[in-house]
Amino acid sequence: MSKISLAHGSGGIETSSLLTRLILNRLPEWMKSLDGGLGLDFPDDSAAIPVREGYIVTTIDAYTVSPIFFPGGDLGKLAAAGTINDILMLGGRPIAVLDAIVVEEGTTMDDLSRIVESMISVLGEEKVCLVGGDIKVMPRGQLDGILITTAGIGVALRIIVDRNVRPGDKIIVSGNIGEHGAAILAAQQGIKSDEFRSDVSPLTKLMLPLIEDYAEDIHAARDPTRGGIAMALNDWAKGSQTMIVIYESELPIREPVVNLCEMMGVDPLNLASEGTALLAVSPDKADEVLSRMHELGYREARIIGEARERTSSIGLVVLKTLIGGARILEPPSGELVPRIC
């Protein structure tokens, strides 16, 4: 009998095949698609429901993390920022959030208050309302700590959809890669160092101006959370029928993160970011968008590659390596665990 394993939740290909088997295959076409909008027919960061003028953008996500307090943030901040970012990545302006909190019996009131406080303060700063919610308690041992589910609602005049990546588009990343994943990995492995801080934060200050001015030129946007940019790029290439070429030498990865990954035997391209955007931008506007991102305070933003016409069946995402070789960048698979060899 097959059972659910941690790999099913790690955001790689096991997660997507589970979702396909468990949910997508059970849905008749009409339940998946929203006429004139975006439903589960093309799974994206959020869904878009067409209204008279534009769209209502909506998303839902469940958040767990261990430890719940980590350098740079906590579960509450993660839940608030994650949901806000999902709305933004579809081109939406976040308006309101609903939450459902499940707590394990015995959790200290102090921990729970700090988590909720943190969630509320992020929403407050971003002028997003909290318009509904629920709280449940599970008997001790039936849940590890706290689980928060947040649903978000936003509005958009036009939406940015993953499957619209076009040959020629430049791939831009807004900041250093893998910071959240590295912070969590370091915390889990008992490594105490000021070098590792999660990048968890809402991307409102970056995305709202970009959506305002470049909605037509940004063909796709994604925050590469679980599964890292390896997963995000593979999803794009698959959804848009393009081939994406990435230059390893252009990837912004901080030295300590590289070191940690080498030590633990994990690939930084599979590590989550929680405050970084990945964009596909039309080539004639790429430089302009890039300098705008720099002006908005995202100084590490860089062009890391481009989309091309798919000419061969081998590989959707190809990485040009440091030494001038090439390899296929596969979507991540399996649980991330440290290795010795």
Partner: peptide, 8 residues
Amino acid sequence: THYGIRSV
């Protein structure tokens, strides 16, 4: 494989 050595 990581550095694509076979390809060069």
